[in-house]
Amino acid sequence: MKYTIEHNDNIVIFTLKNDTLNSRISADFKAELLIICQPDIKALILDLSTVESIDSSGLGGILLAYRQLHEHEIPVILVGVQEMVRTIMNISQIGSQFIFCDTIEEATNYAKEL
């Protein structure tokens, strides 16, 4: 898995650099999310701009972040979600739980206003 993690005033920006979020990388993805999804952060921004496809295990990773942070009312903001990924999220009825932004800048501005 290729990724970067950036911290900006308690906003954590996780940028995935793979083109698929599937069973090959989902275990590593979940492990990283468990480390960064701490109750003292203000928001988690997941940049999925490069991700063209996702499977159930990848969705499971995103849901893991949601569950970890939801109980502390910390939002998960998804950036650059492509059509196929959005379709799978909608099929699975989980799209409505996330905030969607086109760019990291837009997501960061949103998180700062919380």
Binding site: D55, S56, S57, L59, G60, I88, I91, S92
Partner: peptide, 8 residues
């Protein structure tokens, strides 16, 4: 856990 893959 489970069931999401078959559902998809």
């Amino acid at each position: 856990k489970g069931g999401l893959g078959i559902f998809i």
